[in-house]
Design a protein around this nucleic acid. Structure first.
Lengths: 140, 140
DNA sequence: CAGAATCCGTAAAGATACTG
DNA sequence: CAGTATCTTTACGGATTCTG
């Protein structure tokens, strides 16, 4: 298809984009690499080694307020990624569900990618901050 | 170590969380599964099959304004994930760089996870909307 | 301790009009 | 076509105070 190409077009000849490719409100498309809110990933990571208490979570999540932490925990619980358990005496714990734990795999893949390409990312940023043309290219 | 455990604690005995585990401003920790802004992932996905024009990108990105698309494209270019090329006659194309293309791998992993667990996610949401207790558990 | 309720500032996003 | 400029709206997160 599109065998003839487009007049004057020298790039790759590709199919037009599907206008509905992001239409169904489906996270597998909508959030290709963006699960949850700002804190979700970090919370999941904090629960990796076992259940944690509310106050315990606030330590590495530097400066997160109780409100925001509560909101994030609730959102994760709503999606079945974590479970809340109230023990006697003001003790509440949060733990990964099997579903939540399974999320560690794609998370690790994302972290590995960032580590692998960290230098390239830094270099790109430095290059673009040096030249305020942020990578504007001109085709001759 | 923590061999004795915590008095009255019946869960898993785990090391305390490292207070500095998210301290270095390093995306590999900070953004375990959250690259870029709201649109970054979708833009990367749109460029998977080859270069695309500005207007072309606006189609599947339903309703994105020129301003927001410009901002997102600029941010991606700044990080070296996409390249901008201005062809003659008001024709500007955006294409994945090798670095940007390499991001498709972790993105695919994330998408695959979501597809695999889609039903569980839906079920969890329905269960929590049915019972407004959003998964509050009580330990006996 | 584990939140809930309220107020507030910023920043992201959207609408609209305009430009080379 | 590919943006820019400006204004308005909204969402997000933070600070503070209060409660069982």
């Amino acid at each position: 298809m599109v065998a003839e190409g487009i007049p004057g077009y020298r790039g790759a000849v590709t199919e037009p984009l599907d206008p509905e490719m992001f239409d169904p409100v489906c996270p597998s498309d909508l959030t290709p690499i963006r699960f949850g809110d700002k804190w979700a990933g970090m919370i999941i990571r904090c629960l990796e080694d076992g259940p944690r208490r509310f106050s315990e979570l606030r330590i590495p999540l530097r400066g997160i307020t109780a409100k925001v932490l509560t909101q994030s925990l609730r959102a994760l619980a709503r999606d079945g990624l974590i479970a809340r358990t109230a023990h006697p005496a003001q003790r509440v714990e949060y733990a990964l569900t099997p579903l939540g734990r399974s999320m560690l795999e794609p998370m690790d893949a994302a972290c590995a990618w960032t580590r692998e390409h960290w230098d390239e990312l830094i270099d790109a940023r430095e290059a673009s901050s040096a030249a305020p043309s942020y990578g504007l290219g001109r085709a001759g």
